[in-house]
């Protein structure tokens, strides 16, 4: 029970802190959210490339995988793991394979809802 509680504290700490750092960059600099997403993705991919991010994932679980850093990490990890087993072909295909489920669900579900929903004007 205590260990589960501790795990959630770690998730809150890591997930919240990553978002807070991004927000700090948003309000302190002129960097747009889209650029920050790309920067964080790159950081995740670099840390993943050196195999460092997996330690964070092991420590903080969803607190590390849900932020976009985790997406970058899984792309890099996928490429490395596939390169180990399938050589050059794996190095080329591994990244997309690792991310494929998330991307496919995003596209498929968005496609589906777009048939039923219209955009609404913002009230504020």
């Amino acid at each position: 029970m205590l260990s589960a509680l501790l795990m959630y504290l770690k998730v809150i700490f890591v997930g919240g802190s990553i978002c807070m750092i991004a927000q700090l960059i948003v309000i302190r600099t002129k960097i747009t959210p889209a650029r920050i997403l790309v920067i964080f993705l790159m950081v995740g991919a670099i840390l993943g490339g050196f195999g460092l991010y997996n330690y964070v994932v092991e420590w903080a679980g969803a607190g590390a995988t849900i932020p976009i850093l985790g997406f970058g990490n899984s792309l890099a990890n996928g490429a490395i793991t596939a390169a180990k087993t399938d050589g050059l072909f794996g190095a080329l295909s591994g990244g997309l394979i690792a991310a494929s489920a998330g991307i496919a669900v995003s596209i498929g579900l968005s496609y589906l809802i777009s048939f039923f929903v219209n955009s609404k004007t913002k009230k504020d």
Binding site: A79, I80, L88, A91, L92, G95, A99
Partner: peptide, 16 residues
Amino acid sequence: VLVNGVAYSLVVGIVY
């Protein structure tokens, strides 16, 4: 995000 993500994964994979 997608374009950069895929590009980085290619770099990481090929370098590895």
